[in-house]
Design a protein around this nucleic acid. Structure first.
Lengths: 225, 225
DNA sequence: GCTTTTTGTTTTATTTTTGTAAAAATAAAG
DNA sequence: CTTTATTTTTACAAAAATAAAACAAAAAGC
């Protein structure tokens, strides 16, 4: 899961970033509205956290511009304490939720998770695909009755696959969702992780859960049993 | 599909209920806002129809309260005729659609079905042409019941054909759509790919899906069955 | 600070796809 | 009916993409 934080106060931005990274999110930070717009339009974020008061382009304009450009990334706006109007304006501009500064990180995390869940249309943290089951809250994965132990990145890749079953996912798309923006796209890590996932999810090579589409990417398909 | 109707006018409520039951929905009725809130929070409805003017707790408050509690059941609000403000307030409070009283039952049914469909997520973008079907999200192609496996370029060509059925497509046009600008137009790749597509889509040579128009190009035609 | 695990890189091997070229077939024109 | 142009088909070579293995670096755990 890849998030964007648009916040001009460096200290706060860094603080949020650290907390989110701790929660296994990939996080990019933009320090003004213009940069925020660039990043938001350029990368496929799963969620954006946007401060209302920003230099260059204020948060409201940023959200409006994004929505006008058909960017449907869920957005949480950060508003000043007691500013009832800001909250309403934010939601009107196209934000999905709001949070009043200062806030507890737990609160932010809860709202992030709720929004991501809502966006995925999946209130239940369990994802199923044939014999593979995944609990996105506990990050456990089972193959049939046996639990499969995955490393952090193996899990990220699988989770993305399971959120997008049957979809053709290019290596670029996978890379962008799993790593921060400045990652060497020429690397073959993705191939290696797909290899490792295949070995763990399909030790006997019978199920073929991850199909390769040469020149196009991968497709996660599992017979729904 | 289970629906909730929150409406204080007993006669109208019963009328709506009967129509919906006739359409195979399970329907619960609440006669005031408080009861509506209780039912909405307690049961997993697929959709709620809420009147704005209600005793105990008005419809707007009910919707707001539901949204604040992370209940994302799709909501249609019923507003009085000509009350432009009510409609806006309803949508702002978190409703998904509105309907002005009095209304035709067909209109209500259409909106219910639209909302349920929307909540179920976008259907896959399928293209059909006779026995050939193509899913542009998963890039899968079927011939009758059998999936046909195409390479990246074969897929590109077919997709272009299926987006332009019956149109005469010159080889230049195809080339320009499939390759970057600076591609050697003297090559016969297109012919080769058309050949390969024909073999895969029409192994028995009976359907003739891709017609040749000498000197002009190709035309993709498939009897619509 | 040492050990283990995980992540990412490099290298090599293998497979598949793409594009070329030439021959064969077909259609159109004279 | 013969010639010419165009398209289809075949066979093959080149290029590209992926898989796999082994290794190095980084991170995490003890």
């Amino acid at each position: 899961m890849r998030l964007l934080v648009v916040e001009d106060e460096s200290l706060l931005a860094e603080q949020i970033r650290e907390h989110l990274v701790q929660q296994q999110f990939s996080v990019d930070v933009a320090h003004d509205g213009a940069d925020g717009w660039f990043k938001l339009s350029e990368y496929p974020y799963d969620l954006a956290i946007i401060d209302i008061g920003l230099p260059k382009m204020d948060g409201l304009s940023l959200i409006r511009k994004a929505r006008q450009n058909d960017i449907k990334t869920p957005v949480i706006v950060l508003t000043a304490r007691g500013s009832w109007q800001e909250k309403v304006q934010g939601l009107d501009a196209g934000a999905d939720d709001y949070l009043t500064k200062p806030f507890h990180t737990e609160e932010l995390l809860a709202r992030i998770n709720a929004l991501i869940r809502r966006a995925a249309g999946q209130p239940d943290p369990m994802l199923h695909a044939g014999p593979v089951r995944l609990n996105s809250r506990t990050q456990q994965v089972w193959l049939g009755d046996d639990e499969v132990s995955l490393t952090a990145y193996e899990y990220k890749v699988l989770e993305y696959f399971m959120h997008n079953p049957n979809k053709v996912i290019s290596k670029t798309e996978l890379t962008e969702h799993i790593y921060d923006q400045d990652f060497d796209l020429d690397s073959n890590v993705i191939e290696v992780f797909v290899l490792r996932l295949r070995k763990k999810l399909d030790p006997d090579g019978e199920l073929k859960p991850i199909e390769t589409l040469r020149g196009r990417g991968y497709r996660f398909t599992m017979a729904v049993s």
